[in-house]
């Protein structure tokens, strides 16, 4: 049954977490620990951070993230289509041409609008 496989995945997940945490724990045990104020300061060329660290970023990042989500959602449709294509006919290809055509033209629009240019 399917769920069996996912029990393995779950175990693997736990194993990966353990695999990542174990060395850190070991390092805690065997590594030297000498705390000092200077040492724990953020590494910005030896000068303390000026102003706020968590600055506000430009909207460009957000537009890219948004386009990423749009195209990621598009794959949500592409995967089932590709998986089921064998039992469908050529019409499925045509439907996908229409679907992708719209999205591609959306991309072309964004391109022509200049938002794809990273400055």
């Amino acid at each position: 049954m399917i769920i069996n496989n996912y029990i393995f995945i779950g175990l693997l997940l736990l194993a990966a977490i353990a695999f990542a945490l174990a060395p850190i724990l070991v390092a805690r045990l065997i590594a030297p620990r000498k705390r000092s104020r200077t040492k724990s300061e953020p590494y910005e060329c030896g000068v303390l951070t000026l102003g706020e660290t968590w600055v506000r970023f430009r909207i460009q990042y957000y537009i890219f993230a948004l386009m990423f989500v749009v195209f990621d959602v598009e794959t949500l449709f592409l995967f089932p289509w590709a998986a089921g294509y064998a039992s469908l006919g050529l019409f499925a290809l045509v439907e996908m041409v229409v679907f992708l055509g719209f999205l591609l033209l959306g991309l072309v629009y964004a391109w022509a609008k200049g938002v794809l240019r990273w400055v």
């Binding site: 033209l105 072309v108 629009y109 022509a112 609008k113």
Partner: peptide
């Protein structure tokens, strides 16, 4: 709609 959009661009 697409035609109008792209034509405008």
């Amino acid at each position: 709609g697409l035609v109008v959009l792209l034509l405008d661009l």
